[in-house]
Amino acid sequence: MKDFSWNYFLKTGQIDAYLLYKECQMKQDLLQSEAEVQELLSYTKKSLPFNG
């Protein structure tokens, strides 16, 4: 969807297509950030001794 909206924007100049592209990009970036946080948390839990 991201590639389609970008290509559509390039061909037509419609701002709605650009906004859809940006929304897809932001969601993709958010998912990537969440995955990185989960990876760091997983690593931290494995690395730290249990204090309980």
Rank of each mutant, 00 (worst) to 15 (best):
E23L: 12
Y18H: 10
L20A: 08
Q38S: 10
K45V: 12
M26I: 08
F9E: 01
K45M: 12
K27D: 05
N7D: 05
F50N: 15
Y21V: 02
L48I: 11
F50P: 11
F50Y: 09
T44Y: 08
N51E: 14
A35H: 06
D29I: 10
K2E: 10
T44S: 07
K2D: 05
F9G: 00
N51H: 10
P49N: 08
L48S: 06
E36G: 02
K2F: 03
Q28T: 10
S33H: 07
T12M: 01
E23G: 08
K45W: 02
Y18A: 07
L19V: 10
L30C: 05
A17S: 13
P49A: 06
L40A: 14
Y21A: 10
M26G: 02
T44C: 04
K2Y: 02
Y18I: 01
Q28S: 10
S42T: 15
E39P: 00
L31M: 12
S33P: 00
Q25I: 02
L41A: 05
D29A: 14
Q25H: 05
N7C: 03
Y18R: 12
M1T: 06
T44R: 11
Q25Y: 06
Q38A: 14
E23F: 05
G13C: 03
K22L: 07
K11C: 01
T44L: 13
F4I: 04
T12A: 00
S47T: 15
Q14P: 00
N7F: 02
A35W: 04
L19A: 03
L10A: 04
L10P: 01
Y18S: 03
Q38T: 02
F4W: 10
Q25M: 09
S47Q: 15
E39D: 09
P49H: 09
D29L: 13
P49F: 05
Q38H: 04
Y43S: 14
W6E: 00
L20I: 13
S5D: 01
C24H: 07
T12Y: 00
L48R: 15
L40K: 13
L40T: 05
L48V: 13
L31N: 13
G13Q: 03
L48D: 01
W6L: 14
L31I: 09
K22C: 04
E34S: 08
S33D: 09
F9H: 12
E34A: 11
V37G: 01
K27V: 00
S47A: 14
T12I: 01
L30F: 08
L48Q: 14
E23I: 12
D16K: 12
Y18Q: 09
L20M: 08
L48C: 09
A17C: 09
E34H: 05
E39N: 06
M26L: 12
F9V: 02
L41Q: 13
C24R: 03
F50S: 15
L30G: 07
K45L: 15
G13H: 03
N7Q: 11
K46F: 07
K2I: 15
F4G: 00
C24I: 08
Q32V: 13
